[in-house]
Amino acid sequence: MIEVRRRLGATPGQVDAVLADGWTYGLWVVGAVHIREVSEDWPKPGARIRHSIGAWPLMIEDRTYVEEYEPGRLLQLRAHAGPAGTARVRLEWEPDGDGSTVRMSEDAIAGPGRLVPPPVRAPLLRLRNGESLARLAAIARGRPEQPDQA
C-alpha cells in the first residue's frame, strides 16, 4: 500500500463526519466528479457510492464500496476506476493535539493498474492522495463536531 499522512486542523469527530457522509465523496476525492447515488446505509460495510470519474465528456460511471468502517477511526474502501481497475483505499485517523492525523493508503488490487510498476504508480498516488487529504482537511475544519453515534 502506498501511504500519505497529513495532520489536519480538524478533530477526529469532524474528519469522521465528512467520511461518514457519502455525498461529500466527490468534494474530497481527486478524480470523483459527480455523485449519482449513496446507499442509505453508508458507511456500513457493503454500502456503496455510485459516482463518475474523469472530466466531461470523457467521464466513466463507477462505484466505490465500503469494506470496513470503525466510527471515529477507520474507513476502508474498494474503489472501482473503470478500465483502470480496482483499488483498495484505507483511511485511518487519530487525535493529534487539537486536531488529528490522517493516514491514507491506496494501491491497485485488480485490473491493469496492477501492471504499472510500484515505483511508477507510487509518486502519482502520493500526489493525488496528498491533494485528497488537503481537501478533506478543508471540508472537515468547516464541519461541526458530531455527537457520538454509539
Rank of each mutant, 00 (worst) to 15 (best):
T11C: 09
T11F: 05
P12N: 09
P12I: 02
G13Y: 00
G13L: 03
G13R: 12
Q14D: 07
Q14L: 09
Q14F: 05
Q14R: 13
D16W: 09
A17Q: 08
A17R: 13
A17K: 06
A17Y: 02
L19V: 05
L19W: 00
A20C: 14
A20F: 09
D21T: 13
D21M: 08
D21S: 14
G22V: 03
W23N: 11
T24S: 14
T24Q: 13
T24H: 15
T24L: 14
T24Y: 14
Y25F: 12
G26P: 02
G26D: 06
G26S: 11
G26M: 09
G26E: 10
L27G: 12
L27K: 11
L27H: 10
W28P: 15
W28G: 11
V29I: 13
V29Y: 07
V30F: 02
V30Y: 02
V30M: 07
G31T: 04
A32K: 09
A32V: 15
A32I: 10
V33G: 15
H34P: 05
H34V: 11
I35V: 12
I35H: 02
I35D: 02
R36F: 00
E37G: 05
E37C: 06
V38M: 03
V38H: 04
V38S: 05
V38T: 05
S39Q: 07
E40V: 11
E40M: 07
E40T: 08
E40Q: 11
D41K: 08
D41I: 07
D41S: 14
D41T: 13
W42T: 03
W42D: 05
P43C: 04
P43N: 01
P43D: 00
K44S: 06
P45M: 00
G46C: 01
G46W: 00
G46D: 00
G46K: 00
A47C: 04
A47T: 02
A47H: 01
A47W: 00
A47V: 01
I49K: 02
R50H: 12
H51T: 05
H51N: 10
S52H: 13
S52F: 04
I53G: 05
I53F: 06
G54F: 04
G54N: 08
G54D: 05
G54W: 05
A55W: 07
A55P: 11
A55I: 12
W56A: 13
P57E: 06
P57N: 07
P57F: 03
P57G: 06
L58S: 13
L58P: 00
M59F: 04
M59Q: 14
M59I: 12
I60A: 14
I60V: 15
E61G: 14
E61S: 15
E61C: 10
D62N: 15
D62R: 10
R63P: 03
R63K: 15
